[in-house]
Amino acid sequence: MNPIIQVEKLTKAYGAMIAVDDVSFAVQSGEIFGMVGPNGAGKTTTIECLEGLRRPDQGRVHVLGLDPVSQERLLRPQLGVQLQQANLPERIKVWEALDLYASFYSRPLDWRNLIEQLGLAEKRNTAFRKLSGGQKQRLFIALALLNDPQVVFLDELTTGLDPQARHASWDLVRSIRDRGKTVFLTTHFMEEAERLCDRVAIMDQGRIVALDTPANLIRSLKGENRVQFSVDVDLDVSSLSKLPHAGRLERHGDIFVVHGRATDHQDQAALVGEVVNFLTLHGVRFSELRTEQANLEDVFLALTGRQIRV
């Protein structure tokens, strides 16, 4: 099957600043594909090239087999777009915005059903400026879905939302995928990419530094699970490393860190069990037991040598 989105050697510069540098990837039908990275990594420029809002300097971009710039008129009606910095007039009512945007398409969905599903039905007569951040985002999602698009682009969907609204947005995005749509999203939240996306492209300084499923990316970091505890007696360190799931050991004063051998979650649970059993069996009193799991942030750190903090 042909990919829904095909990008080959995409390059885009603003003056001397190269925003996207020779990027290639493909997105398959029906997946949630995430582009993740710090602010300024080139995510928005990439998504805007896919949406036909920016013209690539070099390289080729195809969405649904069409060139987003030269074939914009054919492509535009099939795309759903949620932009990072976009707005509606302050005093427009929810239903007016939906009614207006529906008139732009030849076969729009019934927006009444859409706002019912998105939990905005009771806000239909509310002015845009009176909506909460989460409600505005839901309205923008509704506008993006009005034309029953094949592909939905979501640029920094959850930025500025509180955790509760963010989780609700994730459910929404999954429900879009479950309708058979392809979702392309950008985010600077590693956790969001990890929990939501089928595949993730990690972007840094205009380049894709890794692209795989979140689980594979994390698995590629060997031994990044850790169990940490402190004891007030002397402990024979070497016997800890004989545990089946344990790898390297570290000791800082009375704090011990046992690194795991593998990285999937089950093995981490096994490692914790082994460590606790070991300590109990040997009658060692321990405190401040903590486990740390490798996540996409560690992947980013390992790949770029920098923390992603926003």
Binding site: E51, L53, R73, R76, P77, L79, V81, L83, Q85, A86, N87, L88, P89, Y101, F104, Y105, F140, L143
Partner: peptide, 16 residues
């Protein structure tokens, strides 16, 4: 104002 607030930006992403 419509341009500054991103209202035109959102309209541009439609077939209008």
């Amino acid at each position: 104002g419509n341009r500054e607030n991103g209202i035109l930006r959102r309209l541009r992403a439609t077939p209008m």
